[in-house]
Amino acid sequence: MKILYFAWVRQKVGLAEEDVAPPDSVGDVAGLVAWLAGRSPGHAAAFADPRQVRAAVNQDFATPDQKVAAGDEVAFFPPVTGG
């Protein structure tokens, strides 16, 4: 599973992207957030308040209950501020 980070989420994690293989018990975005938060102090800081972080699965905006599986591209980022 490919994970991408953007904006301050990227800065806190300290990575722009990483390949991960979460356990089978991780089945949705919320579960993935909880699992990623345990990977390093930077991850923990980025996901300290999950309500501040938005997600996309395979380049579509996703809710916490969206399913994720091996091979997916999952991105985490703050609320968008373009325009």
Partner: peptide
């Protein structure tokens, strides 16, 4: 379009 792209397109300003 401008209202929607501000909230629905993945851009971030620093």
């Amino acid at each position: 379009l401008i209202d929607w792209l501000k909230t629905s397109a993945p851009f971030w300003k620093r």
